[in-house]
């Protein structure tokens, strides 16, 4: 009996991270501990794609050659969606970076038969590559379409294979991959903080996309930490904050701040119906 108890204990520690036990469903997504999230200020986003490139380099994402893009098999854990607003000549490009929303109530997690994707106790939607069997059910379930399938083993021509990030798994064919919020960076900061015997400082964790954003449109934060600057920003700008596809009820971990358009009101006026009745 004792050996099986030991086995159970070691198993529990094996699957939990940072010595905490796996939360029950009731606890997941509730503001007890850390909940990693992001504030995306669309007013600052210029659509420069620096985040896309940084993510590509950080996370060993296979090369998105032209052919891959044409057949829509390119993998972009974060992508800049470009929308046109208005009619020519008054058309405006609108950019919105879309990455895994790390939903508190994720549609992808419930449908995976092998727990390859689940919610960890830090609010991350985690993808366990070893478990994944590639049913792609999660990719269908995701309303944001941020899950990407590996149709083949990735290859890097010499010498690009030498720049692979040693902290990140190279995904093989037949599995799903997606944004991890640079979990390897989170882990590194947590380990450093632990060895130095201190708490993680606000803003100490930086995913590659947020780090490379020239306008600081992407800000990574602990949504449960009221002291953190991005959380305060989201609070202060509550008037223009929203979450993506809110009606799906997915409780995303990414808060978007909508574009401030100084001409919006003017345009609205110019398009207002003319009163013809006196």
């Amino acid at each position: 009996m004792s050996s099986s108890a030991n086995e159970a204990a070691s198993r529990a520690s094996a699957v939990s991270s940072m010595g905490q036990t796996i939360p029950t469903d009731a606890e997941v997504g509730h503001p007890e501990g850390v909940r990693w999230g992001m504030v995306v200020d669309l007013d600052r986003c210029t659509g420069c794609q620096a985040c896309v490139v940084a993510c590509q380099a950080e996370n060993n994402i296979a090369l998105n050659e032209e052919q891959r893009v044409l057949e829509r098999r390119a993998k972009t854990w974060i992508r800049i969606e470009r929308y046109w607003e208005g009619e020519f000549p008054n058309a405006k490009a609108r950019f919105i970076p879309v990455l895994c929303q790390h939903c508190g109530n994720a549609p992808c997690e419930t449908v995976c038969p092998v727990w390859a994707t689940y919610h960890n106790n830090e609010g991350l939607n985690v993808q366990v590559y070893n478990r994944c069997i590639g049913t792609r059910f999660c990719a269908n379930g995701c309303p944001y379409s941020v899950r990407y399938f590996n149709f083949w083993n990735p290859e890097w021509p010499e010498p690009m294979n030498n720049q692979l990030n040693p902290d990140v798994t190279v995904r093989t064919k037949g599995i799903i991959e997606k944004c991890t919020f640079c979990i390897q960076r989170i882990n590194r900061v947590q380990v450093t903080a632990k060895t130095e015997g201190r708490e993680i400082r606000s803003g100490e964790v930086q995913p590659a996309c947020a780090q490379s954003c020239p306008t600081s449109a992407l800000v990574f934060c602990d949504l449960n930490d009221p002291e953190s600057a991005p959380a305060q920003l989201a609070e202060a700008e509550a008037g223009r904050s929203y979450t993506l596809l809110e009606h799906f009820g997915t409780d995303p971990g990414i808060i978007y701040l909508k574009k401030v358009d100084p001409h919006a009101e003017l345009e609205e006026d110019s398009h207002a119906p003319v009163e013809t009745h006196a």
């Binding site: 092998v114 727990w115 049913t135």
Partner: peptide
């Protein structure tokens, strides 16, 4: 149709006691 069919057993007859990772009963698959 799955990406890694050689792992089918984990999903259809998922009783791999040693691994401790059980199938997800919420999944229709």
């Amino acid at each position: 149709h799955s990406g890694r069919p050689w792992r089918t057993m984990y999903w259809t007859f998922p009783y791999d006691w040693n691994r401790g990772a059980w199938p997800n009963p919420r999944s229709p698959l």
